[in-house]
């Protein structure tokens, strides 16, 4: 379970960034006072246009970035006070995740299992399950640099799940992937949900959101503009489909500002 309370993040702007953004301000608020909760066995989707603050929010949840203020609890652990403890319960996957090209999948998985402190017995069991599920046996001993995009994505999934995390964070996980490779991710998210894991993911692809989401939040310019269940969202839609409704909300906010 993830609980977020009054979360904010302010970045200091470099001279170059001030020039690019055409602003005199020395800081920028990437996330402003957001609060939400993600429940186990449900998929929470964070939607928003580019630069809305989705990645910053997910990075704060993954303890990669320190919030300027607010509280984050991961499985009841204060993630700000005990980030290393919180990370033990998190699996983190992004669309731009890189892998060590000079290692083999088996070496990489063993490395991450060690970093997550997975015991030898659990590791072998987990590896066997994941290799079977993802059909990875044919390329386990090849260098990752020589694998196809689809194979690499399977290795990434395996790395994310090797320690059997209770909370899984996906940051635009299908971005840049072909339909078949993206399908592996969709299956993974469904499987996480079925296993009672807490899933939070950000995406631009509304069909994915429609397919997977139980709860959703729309973030725009660092602020939460909508939060509720998918059913509630659909019930109050003023347009024909999710994409149009998303555009309408963002445009309304732009006009209001």
């Amino acid at each position: 379970m993830i609980t977020v309370q009054h979360l904010s993040k302010t970045f200091e702007l470099t001279k170059q960034q001030r020039k690019e953004l055409q602003t005199q301000a020395k800081t920028a608020n990437a996330v402003k006072n957001i609060s939400f909760e993600c429940q186990p066995g449900r998929v929470f989707s964070l939607l928003g246009p580019n630069g809305a603050g989705k990645t910053t929010t997910l990075r704060m949840l993954a303890t990669l970035v320190k919030p300027s203020s607010g509280q984050i609890q991961i499985q009841g652990i204060d993630a700000l006070a005990h980030p290393e403890e919180a990370r033990k319960h998190i699996g983190f996957l992004t669309g731009s995740t890189g892998l060590y090209a000079r290692l083999t999948p088996i070496e990489l998985i063993d490395y991450y299992a060690d970093l997550y402190g997975v015991t030898a017995v659990n590791r072998e069991k987990r590896k066997a399950e994941l290799f079977e599920l993802l059909n990875m046996h044919d390329f386990l001993n090849q260098r990752i640099g020589k694998l196809s995009t689809g194979m690499k994505q399977k290795v990434s999934i395996c790395r994310t799940m090797i320690h059997d995390p209770e909370v899984v964070i996906f940051d635009e996980p299908t971005s840049g992937l072909d339909v078949i490779t993206a399908e592996n991710i969709i299956k993974l998210i469904r499987s996480c949900k079925d296993q009672g894991k807490t899933v939070i993911f950000s995406s631009h692809i509304m069909s994915e959101v429609d397919l997977l989401c139980d709860d959703l939040a729309i973030i725009h310019k660092g602020e939460l503009k909508y939060q509720g269940t998918m059913d509630e969202f659909k019930a109050q839609m003023q347009t024909k489909n999710l994409t149009e409704e998303f555009i309408r909300i963002v445009q309304t906010q732009n006009l209001a500002q």
Partner: peptide, 8 residues
Amino acid sequence: ETLLTTPV
């Protein structure tokens, strides 16, 4: 990014 999300 992935390395820093490990509990190390």
